[in-house]
Design a protein around this nucleic acid. Sequence first.
DNA 1: CGGAGTCTTGACTCCAATCAACAGCGGTGG
DNA 2: CCACCGCTGTTGATTGGAGTCAAGACTCCG
Lengths: 236, 236
Amino acid sequence: MTNRSHPRCREINWQGQANCKVCTLRKGLLFARLPDEALDGLLSVERMVHGAKAVLYQEGEPALHLYSVREGLVKLVQRAPNGSSRIVRLLKSGDVAGLESLSDGRYRHTAEAILPTHLCRIAAEGLSAIRHRYSELSDELMQRWQQSLDRADEVITQLSTGTAQGRVARVLLYTLSEPGSNRCVALTRDDLAALLSLTVETVSRTVAEFKRQGIVNEEHGVFHFDRLGLGRAATL
Amino acid sequence: MTNRSHPRCREINWQGQANCKVCTLRKGLLFARLPDEALDGLLSVERMVHGAKAVLYQEGEPALHLYSVREGLVKLVQRAPNGSSRIVRLLKSGDVAGLESLSDGRYRHTAEAILPTHLCRIAAEGLSAIRHRYSELSDELMQRWQQSLDRADEVITQLSTGTAQGRVARVLLYTLSEPGSNRCVALTRDDLAALLSLTVETVSRTVAEFKRQGIVNEEHGVFHFDRLGLGRAATL
DNA sequence: CGGAGTCTTGACTCCAATCAACAGCGGTGG
DNA sequence: CCACCGCTGTTGATTGGAGTCAAGACTCCG
């Protein structure tokens, strides 16, 4: 049996029906302001843990569930016209994947865990059914939708323009680290490249250059960095 | 007095309270499935016409209204870290600008008409008030939100990656023209550049090259093109 | 007419893609 | 145990494509 808290790569552990009423994270998640009684009915919520590289859903599949991220990191990937794939968004704790299940048919992206990730999987059907009864839920969903849009805009303006140095600096500063923090997960060079629309080699070189300048330091899968130095590079 | 149907540049014409019940476009717009009686109450809807270059709202302003596009073309612009500005989305008939007015505080973008544009301006407050009563409206809003997200993803994967030729080809084929059509509005080179994250000069050269190859033709502010030829270029 | 704004074209530079080789690491299996 | 393999990351040499700078053409309007 796999270790439940740290599943191996590509593994998915189903951990049973969730009991949202006792959820320790509820106030930060989708059902924050929903009254307890709403959680009894049609709503199907399952807890799951996905190991790194495990796939939540594939682009084009019928969208039946949405996923609320409790902990970890998930990438949404879309195939580009030339065959390569681009990371369109990263989802952290509190974010929701698969919102398209509420409006229509099929998933737009492939969702894959980057870190071991704890999720709640919610059946779209049940959610739609109670959505109309509880306006708090509609409000909360709109917040998530807006959040997704903000993230998308960030990718457009921050991560798809300017020099390689600028993009790498901005992804570390704004996308991957908490505001004010000076460290963040060290994504693989491939993921950084797919997120920044650069090649692996360019990302590798750029990070190496930052290390040489003493602005960035990497150990045990974590980047530590000098916010001031990166900030200067970010305007390039 | 300005000609109402073709206002001059930067001009804004307020055309009074709208009567949605007799709206010829209603079925394609936000209130498509809303019962007539819902339109009587708190809802404030005004018809407006914006000339080219007229600004609907500015980034950072308090978001009080949302705008439903009846006809025309609007760009959403965001300032990039280096000071230049990037077009993050284009809005056509049926699209909605300023959805952020429903979730929180301030506009994320500057919205500016590219073509003379007919709009309905809807007070966010009134909409929020009736949103909870009419689930059809929530549904319709979710559709628009999803639509915005799809557009954003399109900008990320189609318009921010690959060679200049590929990007220009894709913007003409997929973003600016109706599916199956072989013509579209000829945006200014600046707007194309801001949308594709290229320089004006590169866009100009690329379009010129397409013209030389005979796959694009420009007259009276319209591009005519060979779908097959552009399709080949789009995979670059 | 002149002027502002838009578009085009040329010459040059430079940054990132490409192609290629190799190092390090963990895992697998003989 | 070690040899081998796949995966990730690094580095170098070279190329190509887009950015930059600059000049000039064109159009629309006052």
